Amino acid sequence: KFNKELSVAGREIVTLPNLNDPQKKAFIFSLWDDPSQSANLLAEAKKLNDAQAPK
């Protein structure tokens, strides 16, 4: 279960257009550290992506 959630969340995070590479890497490392938090980490990444969207 975690492997699928981890890969789905990881793929989504790397495609978020408004995150820079260090931010993406930080989220990916957090996913590896605790795969059970993949849904929460993906939600946080999406929030940050939205907040950094060009206005």
Rank of each mutant, 00 (worst) to 15 (best):
A51D: 09
S38C: 14
A51C: 12
K46S: 04
I13E: 02
V14H: 07
E12S: 05
T15V: 08
I28V: 05
A39P: 05
L31E: 02
L48E: 02
K1I: 14
N3K: 07
P22G: 14
L48V: 06
P54M: 09
P17L: 06
F29W: 12
L6M: 10
P54Q: 10
P35I: 03
A45Y: 03
K1H: 11
D21R: 07
Q52D: 02
G10N: 06
P54H: 09
S7V: 14
A43K: 09
G10R: 13
F29T: 08
N49V: 00
D50M: 10
L6I: 10
L6N: 04
I13Q: 00
P22T: 15
S30D: 05
Q52L: 08
Q37F: 04
V8M: 12
K55P: 11
P17F: 03
A53F: 05
F2L: 11
S38L: 14
L16T: 01
P35D: 04
L48D: 01
K1P: 12
N3C: 15
L6R: 05
A43S: 07
R11Y: 13
N40R: 14
I13F: 03
F2S: 09
E12Q: 11
L6D: 04
T15E: 14
V8Y: 12
A39E: 12
N18V: 01
E5V: 11
P54Y: 08
N40D: 09
E12M: 12
P54V: 09
E44Q: 12
K4N: 11
K55H: 11
Q52H: 04
N49F: 02
S36E: 08
N49P: 00
K24G: 01
L41D: 00
L19D: 01
A53N: 06
K25V: 11
N3H: 12
S7L: 15
N49C: 04
L41C: 05
E44V: 08
F2H: 09
F2A: 06
N40G: 08
L16E: 01
F2R: 07
K47A: 13
S30K: 14
I13W: 00
S7A: 13
E44I: 12
L31R: 00
K1L: 12
D33C: 15
L42W: 04
K55D: 10
N18K: 02
L16G: 00
P54W: 06
I28R: 00
I28M: 07
S38P: 02
P17C: 12
A53I: 06
G10W: 15
A26E: 07
D21E: 12
S30V: 06
A43Q: 10
I28N: 01
D33E: 13
L48Q: 04
E5K: 09
A43F: 08
L6A: 14
D34W: 02
F2I: 11
K55Q: 11
N18S: 03
L6F: 07
L41M: 05
F2V: 11
L48M: 07
S7I: 14
A53Q: 08
F27D: 01
S30R: 15
R11D: 06
L31Y: 00
L19H: 01
S7K: 07
N40M: 13
K46P: 01
K47E: 07
S36W: 04
N18T: 01
D50P: 01
S36I: 04
A26S: 08
L19S: 03
K4P: 12
N20M: 06
N20W: 06
K24W: 04
N20R: 09
K25R: 12
D34A: 05
Q52F: 04
K24D: 01
S7Y: 14
K24S: 01
S30G: 06
T15L: 14
Q37E: 09
A26R: 11
S30I: 08
V8R: 13
N20K: 09
I28C: 12
L16P: 01
A9M: 11
I28T: 02
T15H: 11
Q52P: 02
S7M: 14
D21A: 10
P22L: 14
G10F: 15
K1F: 13
